[in-house]
């Protein structure tokens, strides 16, 4: 599928900032299941591209002059391939590292017990069946609702409230998998259609021995399809965040995000 993306993030400040610096994880990964074409980032005064330890393309963006507003626009096309949610076996990252309980994905007894209820499936039908069952159970248990959580909410906090958005679902799924010793990581990206915010999205990937990384999107109760574009993989939201910034001066920030993700109809 050819997917056209335009993602605009616009910061407006009441009081001007003197300097601003950001890491932007806004460039899709070139993988077996997706090829990136004509990708561009514009807006910030200066941009330097580098690769982080997870292999994500990152830009260091900096603004050195006084500014009241800052606009970051990424756009381009990605050609995706349907792989039934399965990704290459080895992308150079040891699966075992995605067992780390960061503060956002740390499992507690309540969430652990929820995951344990399903663990019988692992022995009976294998890990893959467990992962599908956990995805479905979370989708049943937790309601998709925006405005009930922030990006700083941990999986356990969200599980108490039973309400959250895509990154919360991803965190919950990761914590539930870690409980059963299944390496699982966070993915940020785009989706052409799905729950809530139509475009900017997050889901998870679990490492199934013998098969490789398999993607699960508990917010949409499905494995990733060719409608999904992967931006970055990491432990959790904090390490995969599309934009992390600091600035000197400046107050009264307003952020407006506009994302368009469309399938390109190929004329034959």
């Amino acid at each position: 599928m050819r997917i056209k993306i335009r993602h605009e993030t616009h910061y407006v400040l009441e009081q001007a900032a003197r300097r601003a610096m950001q890491y932007l994880r806004l460039t899709p990964r070139n993988d077996r299941n997706q090829r990136v074409g004509n990708w561009s980032i514009s807006g910030p005064e200066k941009l330097t591209q580098w690769l982080d330890g997870f292999g994500n393309v990152v830009h260091f963006a900096s603004e050195h002059t006084d500014h009241n507003d800052l606009k970051i626009v990424v756009e381009g096309e990605v050609e995706t391939k349907e792989t039934n949610g399965v990704l290459p076996l080895d992308d150079g990252l040891p699966p075992g590292m995605f067992m780390r309980p960061t503060p956002l994905i740390k499992c507690d007894e309540v969430l652990g017990a929820f995951s344990d209820e399903l663990k019988g499936i692992i022995e009976k039908d294998g890990e893959l069946s467990f992962l599908h069952a956990l995805m479905a159970a979370l989708a049943d248990e937790v309601t998709y609702e925006s405005g009930q959580s922030t990006v700083a909410c941990s999986a356990t906090e969200v599980f108490e409230r039973k309400k959250g958005v895509c990154q919360d679902f991803a965190h919950l799924f990761i914590a539930g998998c870690h409980r059963q010793n299944i390496p699982t990581r966070y993915v940020s990206g785009y989706i052409t259609n799905g729950a809530g915010d139509p475009a900017s999205h997050a889901w998870a990937e679990s490492y199934v021995s013998g098969l490789g990384w398999v993607s699960f999107d508990p917010a949409n109760r499905q494995c990733a399809t060719e409608s999904y574009v992967r931006l970055a993989v990491a432990y959790d939201y904090a390490t995969a965040a599309p934009i992390i910034g600091v600035r000197t001066g400046g107050q009264g920030e307003q952020m407006n995000v506009n994302v368009q993700v469309d399938q390109v109809q190929v004329q034959s």
Partner: peptide
């Protein structure tokens, strides 16, 4: 044991491959 390294807080993924 791999988990002693890989899930250790002092293991920095930022350093992988550098």
């Amino acid at each position: 044991p791999p988990d002693l390294i890989l899930t250790n807080e002092a293991f920095r993924p930022e350093m992988l491959g550098l």
